[in-house]
């Protein structure tokens, strides 16, 4: 495992930031860490990277416990914060070379690696310009380049595409996928659910300082109560037909969304052949049948909403924002 976290806890005075956070990230995996604002994402990242000290819990990287001294593990990780934090007075190339020097890279290698990354990220032409003059997308790209200058095994990314244009965001996502294919483990926090859905192999939801759900996309989707939803476009469709459908197929609830458009909700996979037979017997033509999958956003809203409601009922207030 690249990252193993267990029983992580952090309080700021009496305010709970995170409580009993547990998850693990496999080597070469892209792991998404999602949660509403103030859920404890940044505090967790700060503890994982050494900017904050946990009150209790364990942090292991590649099987070794670094809880007592995260500094020893900092050469293993690259960190890309939510705001680009390079030096505005230095040029793009100087920034990269400086970051490489912080990781003890020799002079010649610094130069070569910086040039290569500038080329990879399409910043060669802007290499001698001061960082302060870069556009937001360019700043983001250079910050990511600085995060991977020392070829870390694990890359922590906080909101990598926040506030940048669509083209730059696509380019960054493609660069991240490329990095991951070459074996880098990526720990990603984002507000863009779609981004997590596209990039992440597994996702954890954190709400009010607690991990409420961890799993692959399929596992998270299937955790929704709705199960499978099949939508049918038919030549005719009424509430009467929906009632007949519900009666004929056990465990299926049918609903007419609009005339000629019917949705079937069921817990298990639905066999389509008997379904088509049902319509054929009634002389109704089925023009389209498609599986309506709940989006990760649906799962996120459902999970986080439910959990917040539970917490409020349980009287867990006063948590950190």
């Amino acid at each position: 495992m690249a990252i193993e976290v267990s029983g992580l806890r952090k309080y700021f005075g009496r305010l709970r930031a995170v409580e009993n956070v547990e998850f693990s990230v496999g080597e070469g995996e892209i792991f998404g860490f999602l949660g509403p604002n103030g859920a404890g994402k940044t505090t967790t990242i700060n503890m994982l990277t050494g900017l904050a000290r946990p009150d209790s819990g364990r942090i292991r990287y590649f099987g070794r416990d670094y809880t007592a001294d995260i500094k020893q593990a900092q050469h293993l990780m690259g960190i890309v914060p939510d705001e680009s934090n390079l030096y505005p007075e230095l040029t793009g190339r100087e920034n990269l070379k400086f970051c490489a020097a912080l990781y003890g890279m020799p002079g010649r290698e610094r130069e070569q690696r910086s040039s290569r990354l500038l080329e990879t990220f399409g910043l060669t032409e802007a290499a001698e310009r001061k960082f302060a003059t870069y556009s937001r997308g360019m700043k983001r790209k250079l910050t990511i380049a600085a995060g991977i200058i020392h070829r870390p095994g694990i890359l922590f990314l906080d909101e990598p595409t926040s506030g940048i244009d669509v083209a730059s965001a696509r380019q960054i996502r493609s660069l991240l996928s490329g990095l991951n294919r070459r074996g880098t483990t990526i720990f990603l926090t984002t507000h863009y659910i779609e981004e997590a859905e596209r990039l992440c192999a597994r996702i954890a939801f954190i709400v009010a300082g607690r991990i409420v759900r961890v799993g692959t996309l399929d596992e998270l989707m299937s955790s929704l109560e709705a199960g499978h939803v099949v939508e049918l476009l038919t030549s005719a469709g009424t509430d009467q037909l929906a009632a007949e459908l519900s009666g004929e197929f056990a465990g299926v609830r049918a609903e007419t969304v609009e005339p000629g458009r019917t949705r079937l909700y069921c817990r298990k996979r639905l066999d389509l052949a008997p379904l088509f037979g049902f319509f054929e017997r009634r002389g109704i033509e089925v023009s389209e049948a498609r599986l309506v999958r709940p989006s990760l956003e649906d799962v996120f809203v459902r999970v986080t909403g439910l959990e917040i409601a539970k917490m409020d009922n349980g009287g867990h207030r006063g948590r950190r924002g």
Partner: peptide, 15 residues
Amino acid sequence: KGRSFERLLLSPVPL
């Protein structure tokens, strides 16, 4: 203020 100090703190250079 510019958070570039964090970059130094996150590097493996001893404090």
